[in-house]
Nucleic acid binder design. Sequence first.
DNA 1: CGGATCGTGCGTCACCAAGG
DNA 2: CCTTGGTGACGCACGATCCG
Length: 118
Amino acid sequence: MAVTGDETESATTGGMSGYQMSSPASGLSQVMDSSPDSLPSPQLLAEEASRKRELRLMKNRTAAKLYRRRKRDYVLGLETRITSIEDQNQKLKEELDNLKKLCSLGCSNHSSTLDAAI
DNA sequence: CGGATCGTGCGTCACCAAGG
DNA sequence: CCTTGGTGACGCACGATCCG
């Protein structure tokens, strides 16, 4: 149900609320290349800050995707384990039943021989 | 059919811990 | 210290389903 979670790396159109993807880290060298003795202009500083922010957002976006994928896999693994354990439990119950039946047939004989021995 | 509600994924922010 | 990655929490958008 709900959104088909195709894990494409490109930002999905859904869920994009009020921000735009600009190409991050592009032209970063321009700021770096400003002459060393003159202070970078406020505009350059602002652009630098903006680029840093975009980079941070991009990395965090990636980290969040990775984290959620790990979390999903973890939960999936747990569910698989639960299914397997339930299956194993069912088989053990059946085996126990069989042993009980077997015992009810043979144990009376066995106990009588034990009584005789005593 | 159209609005209400639900379930889900996503991006972002804030916080924390670890490492340099 | 600062930087960086991991994570919880929040809000938003969207598709699915329900209901009048």
